[in-house]
Each structure stands twice: as structure tokens, then as C-alpha cells.
Amino acid sequence: MNKNIVLCGVGGQGTVLASKLIAAAAMKKGLGVMSAETIGMAQRGGSVFGNVRIGSDLFSPMIGKGQADIIIGFECGETVRMLPYLKKGGYVVSSVRSIMPTTAALGDTGYSAQPMTEYLKNNVAEGRLSLVDTLEAEKELKSSKVMNLVLLGAAVRTGVTGLSEDDIISALPDAVKPEFIELNTKAFFFTK
């Protein structure tokens, strides 16, 4: 059975590393992997996504609406934006954090996390939503670059990716410099 994983966030948040880790972990298990991600102008603070597909019967790297087994959201508003891609009964792991774009800061429309997380609570099936306070994780781990591993840990522990904690940890050296492995491992287990 193919697994479809959608990652989303704002350019510069580190969604790319998370998708690379998932792919590396799946490859180590001998599974086929395809992925796609946003590269280019949108990386300068625009909405970005990553699609990772794991399985033996893959043609397209893209995931269609209603096809994602799990959405991993790095910014709560972006998670809401990607909800149409979620399968019925699919899982959502999202940061509770919001990032205000300059356009919203300039106007008086405002933008805050609370209505977004409320919406997620009301629209994701019971027991399928995991909201993570990534800001707290960043403070505790004293690093602004750990969000990807914190969220990935929570996502793997839903069981829906078909990958185990060990699968990801053993793939870490392929994607992360040796000096950052300890920090990233801590981040991976932060929500446990």
C-alpha cells in the first residue's frame, strides 16, 4: 500500500530536511520513494510544500486532493491550507505556531494562530490531530532549527507513515552533520 505524506510551511522553515529524512529512511528499508518540493522564488517566505510518496507502484511524485495519509504542518495556517489534500480519516501533525506575513502586518486584517488551531480541532477526525508547541521545543532545546525533527517525531509516532522511530534515527547520519545528530535526536523524541 502506498503512503502519501504532505509537508507544508513557509519558505525557510526546513521542510526539505524532513522530507529527505523520510525518504532516506524508506530507502533503507528497500521501499520505492518519490518526492517533490517547492524550490525557487517561493522559498523567500512564500507558502511551500513537500510531497513524499512511499511504495512500489508509483508514477507521479505529486499527491492529489483527498490522498494524503498524513499532513505535517510547520505553520498552522499553512496546515489549514493543505487540509483538502487529507484522506478521510487521515492524520494531521501541526505546529501551533503562526507566522505573520508582511502583507498582514501592513494591513489591519491581523492574523493569529488561535482561529487556525480551532479550525483544525473542528475539522480533523477525533484522535487524528496532534498539535505541537514547537516554540516551546525551540526554547527548551535552545535552537531555532529543530522544528522539523520535533514534528517528524510526532508524525512517525502516529504509526501512519509505515516507518518506525528507529528507521528515522538510523537515517539521520545521511542527512545531518555529525555534530547535530544529538540535538536532532533530542528534538525527534521531544513529544514522546
Binding site: 505573520m100 506575513p101 508582511t102
Partner: peptide
């Protein structure tokens, strides 16, 4: 499956044009 229309009642999402860092 009919294309899902889940976002029709969502709070308005911000536009995110790319910006200078």
C-alpha cells in the same frame, strides 16, 4: 470522490507573496 470543499468555512488564510529576506 467529489473534490472536497472543506475550506469553505475556514478562517481567511493569509496570502504569502515571496519577500526579500
Amino acid at each position: 470522490e467529489e473534490p472536497s470543499d472543506v475550506l469553505s468555512d475556514a478562517p481567511s488564510l493569509p496570502v504569502r507573496p515571496p519577500v526579500l529576506c
